[in-house]
Simulated scan of single mutants.
Amino acid sequence: MPKPQEICEVTAFGEKYSNWKTVEVTRSIADDVVIHVMLTVAEISSNAKSLSDLKLKPGDPVTVKLAGREALDGWVYLRQAAADGYQHAVQIGIASRSQHVIASTVDCKPGQYKNQTLQQIVSSCFAKVGVNFTIIGNPPGANLPFKRVSEHMGERRFDFAARLCAMRNIHMVDSASGVIGFRGPAATSGLEITEGRNMLRGRVLLQTWDQVDPIVINGQDHSNESGDDNRATKGVASIPGFRRPARFAAEETGNNAEMQMRAAHEKDFVLLKMVDGDVSVPGWLTRDGSLWMEHVREIITLNSPLLLPSNSMRFMIKGVVHRQSSEGGTTTDVLLCDTLGVGGGGQEPVHLDDQSGGAQAH
């Protein structure tokens, strides 16, 4: 049985449901930006007398609390019931409101944005389905206006935003207040996971299979007086190691500063693949009483001679999965990545005064 302070409570239309057989709550920068909950029940809600009294259904607005702390404000998107002569169960899926930008496509009305920033464009696109978008931390270059951007018919709102975020080296993650755009990890959390103390199990992957160097982004610009300035722009990022050039075409037009941000974004995703891990800890709460999912993007120290080439390393928390079941108890999977994997010092300087094009082929 879970501890009283480790209960998952779902509230819909004033009715509270808390007798879940299994609980899984996920928040991650590595997936589509949706906080996601999957629950199964064989024993019914606190006020229900039979399985048929579990009235949650797709479309119901709900809030989810873990250990009394708000984890999600969203909607039921899935109800799946199964029964035979020996057993019965209901599975409930819940997603945050940000799921609207995953399911819906751009309106193409007006379909084109001129001289607007990433914040302005994505906020306008997401607001049409009731989702907020906020860039935090004032990343250099993030407020550089796009000269002209067009929506593509049939493109998901999330994919449209991701296309533009790549040009400003901005990553996205879901939150209680909507989608957050960011670059780099948050402050060091002070949290530690230590083998033999609070680590149940773990896995850490360090690899160079995906390492490339240099990363070159080629693009073009427009509206400059010089045709040479329009003809070719370029950004270059480096991941030291083997010389294995990787060249890409930019999704949008832009000057050298914009191409440099796009190259840094590509570098971030390579670094995310080069370092990957997941470590399980008991319970859902950290030592200060906050949920582990509240610490996504923060830096953590892992102390594990069994998993690491050195006794201790620092990682960024790229995601969290809170779990609960009668078999596995109440645990949290902390998903790890390189501290540079979202631009944490890994971006070459962005010179905003570099408005020129005319870069030669690398």
Score class of each variant (00 low, 15 high):
Gln87Asn: 11
Gln211Cys: 04
Met316Leu: 13
Glu252Gly: 01
Leu306Ile: 04
Lys55His: 12
Gln80His: 12
Asp354Phe: 00
Asp31Leu: 04
Lys109Phe: 12
Gly319Asn: 13
Gly343Asp: 04
Gly74Phe: 03
Gly219Asn: 09
Asn303Val: 15
Asp276Lys: 14
Lys55Thr: 14
Thr40Met: 03
Lys57Cys: 03
Ala250Tyr: 09
Met1Val: 09
Asn138Glu: 15
Phe133Pro: 00
Asn255Leu: 07
Gly235Cys: 08
Gln120Val: 09
Ala232Lys: 14
Phe160Pro: 01
Asp229Gln: 15
Asn198Phe: 04
Leu306Phe: 09
Val179Ile: 15
Ile300Leu: 14
Ser50Gln: 13
Gly227Tyr: 13
Glu9Ile: 12
Asp278Pro: 01
Gln347Ile: 01
Gly85Ser: 03
Glu192Ile: 05
Val342Gly: 13
Ser104Thr: 05
Lys3Trp: 07
Ser150Gly: 07
Met261Gly: 04
Ile35Thr: 14
Ser312Asn: 10
Ile300Pro: 00
Gly227His: 12
Glu251Gly: 15
Ile180Gly: 00
Asn138Val: 07
Asp107Ile: 09
Ser175Met: 08
Gln207Leu: 02
Arg79Asn: 10
Ala42Met: 12
Pro139Asp: 06
Ala67His: 00
Glu70Arg: 02
Gln324Leu: 06
Leu72Phe: 03
Pro110Phe: 04
Gly14Lys: 09
Leu144Glu: 13
Ser177Glu: 12
Pro240Glu: 11
Val62Met: 04
Ala89Met: 11
Asp229Val: 10
Ser356Cys: 11
His171Ala: 15
Asp73Arg: 06
Leu335Ile: 14
His36Trp: 08
Asn138Cys: 06
Pro140His: 01
Gln220Glu: 12
Thr301Glu: 08
Arg197Thr: 08
Trp209Glu: 09
Asp107Glu: 12
Met38Cys: 13
Thr63Trp: 01
Glu24Thr: 06
Arg163Leu: 05
Ile136Tyr: 09
Ile92Cys: 02
Arg323Gly: 13
Gly343Met: 12
Asn224Tyr: 13
Ile136Asn: 10
Val101Tyr: 00
Ser28Asn: 02
Lys128Asn: 10
Arg314Gln: 15
Ile215Cys: 09
Arg79Cys: 05
Gly59Met: 05
Ser18Asp: 10
Leu78Ala: 08
Asn311Lys: 14
Ser304Gly: 11
Gly283Glu: 11
Ile193Phe: 06
His152Tyr: 00
Gln80Ala: 12
His36Asn: 04
Trp20Tyr: 10
Phe13Ala: 14
Thr63Ile: 03
Gly277Lys: 02
Thr301Ile: 07
Asp213Met: 03
Gly68Cys: 02
Ile317Pro: 02
Glu24Trp: 00
Phe13Asp: 14
Asp278Gln: 13
Arg163Lys: 10
Leu352Asn: 09
Met261Gln: 13
Cys108Tyr: 05
Trp20His: 02
Val334Ser: 10
Gly85Tyr: 06
Ala359Arg: 08
Gly289Pro: 03
Arg247Gln: 15
Lys3Leu: 11
Leu285Met: 11
Gln91Thr: 15
Lys57Ile: 05
Ile239Arg: 00
Arg323Ile: 07
Asp159Ala: 02
Ala95His: 05
Lys21Asn: 11
Met38Pro: 01
Asn230Lys: 13
Arg201Glu: 11
Leu206Trp: 03
Met153Gly: 10
Lys273Leu: 04
Arg168Gly: 04
Glu225Ser: 11
Ala48Gly: 15
Phe242Tyr: 01
Trp20Asp: 02
Ile7Pro: 00
Asp107Pro: 01
Gly202Leu: 08
Tyr86Gly: 10
Asp221Phe: 08
Gln120Arg: 11
Val122Glu: 01
